[in-house]
């Protein structure tokens, strides 16, 4: 049980740091998230894309050194495109996502704590109820497994990561220049 306690405490500690960062970034605030979805303010994407560049380069170095084994999620068009669009509509109506809503609750936002949180739990329970049929049906449509972009293109991860990171930095530069 000692291991389990250690894992749980590590999770809690990482969560405190993650929540702290999200709040300081402003993304626990409905106004900031909805302004991103209305394409008026790109704070959310700036945070996410910067994290992807920094995180992605580090994780692939660690993997090359044999320190970690990455674990890309399997998927299919039926799962990720359809589920992603349903999620997106919810994202636009609620104005928080499952991570930022935790931060929003800590920030004192009651529409997150009362409306949004209850909704997410109901939504998750509904998916659990319909899961067996979905798993046998639409989840299998256009299945591609736990593939990475590098495996798809049959190149090394660096051949994807370096151009992708460059492109992201260029996009961020353009966003800054455009005053978004």
């Amino acid at each position: 049980m000692r291991n389990r306690t250690t894992q749980l405490l590590q999770g809690l500690g990482f969560g405190i740091l993650f929540g702290f960062l999200l709040q300081k970034g402003g993304v626990t605030n409905y106004n900031v998230i909805i302004a991103q979805l209305l394409l008026e303010d790109f704070t959310v994407l700036k945070i996410m894309l910067t994290a992807v560049v920094v995180g992605g380069l580090g994780l692939h170095v660690f993997q090359a050194l044999g320190w970690i084994t990455l674990n890309p999620k399997p998927g299919s068009w039926g799962r990720n495109a359809v589920g992603g669009l349903i999620f997106g509509v919810g994202f636009g109506l609620l104005g928080y996502c499952p991570g930022t809503i935790a931060g929003a609750i800590g920030n004192g936002y009651l529409d997150a704590a009362i409306g949004g949180l209850v909704g997410i739990l109901i939504g998750a329970a509904l998916l659990a109820a319909y899961y067996p049929g979905l798993k046998r049906g639409i989840f299998l449509q256009g299945n591609f497994g736990p593939q990475t972009l590098a495996q798809l293109l049959k190149v090394s991860p660096w051949a994807v990561l370096i151009p992708l990171s460059t492109l992201i930095l260029l996009l961020l530069y353009i966003l800054e220049r455009a005053g978004l």
Binding site: G75, R79, N80, V82, G83, G84, L85, I86, F87, G88, V89, G90, F91, G92, L93, L94, G95, C97, P98, I101, G115, G116, L117, V118, G119, I120, L121, I122, G123, A124, A125, L126, L127, A128, L134
Partner: peptide, 12 residues
């Protein structure tokens, strides 16, 4: 919005 978000997140 929360229902769609929770349903869609676990779907995806």
């Amino acid at each position: 919005g929360g229902v769609l978000l929770g349903f869609g997140a676990r779907w995806a």
